[in-house]
Design a protein around this nucleic acid. Structure first.
Lengths: 214, 214
DNA sequence: GCAGGTGTGAGACAAAAGTCTCAAAATGCA
DNA sequence: TGCATTTTGAGACTTTTGTCTCACACCTGC
């Protein structure tokens, strides 16, 4: 995709370029919806955004971001899910799971450029769309609706990741499991119990004990 | 403070009004610095912002936001500290502590208007400045630098509150204590052990055991 | 169908954390 | 200074969670 062309002269698109964008629009209808759920976008902004998305197919276990790398992109999950984990002495501790329609990135002190403490990889065979954070900033300066979108995306990521912030503090292990069972059952259906255990801040043994008691 | 006057005709301030603002500016030099650390502001924006700040002195245990209330403001701590806690069956579980120069609010799904699950009260005798979130939004539309400020404030709050997000998941109780000891020692100096315990996701007994072992 | 990898459930024991309690220490205030 | 309140440290015991282990079920590809 010749994204620079769109970036520099968005108003000057040739007809065949427009057709190209229209084609993309059809292909990524679902993805577009995810953006439009956050904020209404003009046709031009949609074209620019779509042109700047990069598609990637990930096999299970394939990483989009590895520990120590610098995270320059935002990942939007189309299919499958991304698993964010921390490696503690060879043991993976799951921090977050991103399912269809959600955004993932490594945000630390809200700056681009800090080495990631986490690895983000596909939990199952997945389709993701990659959006450069720098490009998002650049486009924000030109398009007010993209500025809004960029705020919402980052804000959504932060709210999502901190949603379970107090879970471990407030609830007992059994209560945490019940909370997920009630509020996020798809987690239990799609994520293995071993992964759930570290996500819930307990060992696999404790988790099976809780499940057994019911 | 006749904040509406400034809000509607910021450029038309009378001389004595300007003097009023100048006076405020002197009084809140420290507060102003907290804003300027986040983003450079024009003199006009500073005047508007300062005129829209409301000062409050809080006794220890006095709340700025109670569970069930709707949080419409952002609180900036000048002196003392704010304690955010969740009430679980009569037991207070501490979620966050806000010291001098930090911002507190109840952010849930980044919307204004959801009843707060937490109470925010003074942990010691405190001086706070209150800024309406709605006003921040309104001013953002008029002043680009306040728009930036508003983003930074919210983003700062989110990053701060989610900084310890993975602490409970990744570290053992003893490691959590050591982490705080190393990265946030003022917490241990100013917050009582009972409050620290629930913040660290353990009981007071466990915390004293950890401290005793050193 | 079968071999090999992956995920799961549970027993046995060890270790850690929680509960209840109370006396000592620290703090605040008149 | 002295009294009342709050905060803390720790003993004794119970309950929960973790560690190590192994057998079994379930896929998947050959």
């Amino acid at each position: 995709m010749n994204s620079h062309f769109y970036f520099l002269w968005p108003a000057d698109l040739y007809e065949h370029e427009r057709r190209g964008i229209y084609y993309l629009w059809i292909v990524n209808e679902k993805i577009l919806e995810y953006f439009l759920q956050l904020v209404p976008l003009s046709e031009e902004s949609i074209a620019i955004l779509t042109a700047n998305l990069e598609h990637k197919t990930l096999e299970k276990g394939e990483a989009v971001l590895k520990e120590g790398q610098i995270c320059t992109d935002v990942y939007l999950v189309e299919k499958g899910y991304l698993r964010t984990y921390y490696n503690k002495d060879g043991i993976e501790i799951n921090i977050h799971f991103n399912f269809e329609g959600t955004f993932a990135t490594y945000l630390k002190s809200s700056k681009v450029g800090e080495a990631s403490a986490f690895t983000i990889e596909a939990g199952e065979k997945s389709e993701v769309w990659i959006l450069s954070r720098q490009k998002l900033v650049d486009l924000s300066l030109l398009y007010p609706d993209i500025m809004l979108l960029s705020r919402r995306v980052i804000s959504r990521i932060l709210v999502d990741t901190s949603a379970n912030n107090s879970l471990l503090r407030i609830y007992s292990p059994a209560e945490r499991y019940q909370y997920i069972e009630k509020n996020n059952p798809q987690l239990l259906q799609r994520v293995s119990l071993s992964h759930m255990a570290s996500y819930l801040g307990m060992t696999r043994r404790t988790l099976t004990r809780i499940r057994g008691k019911k």
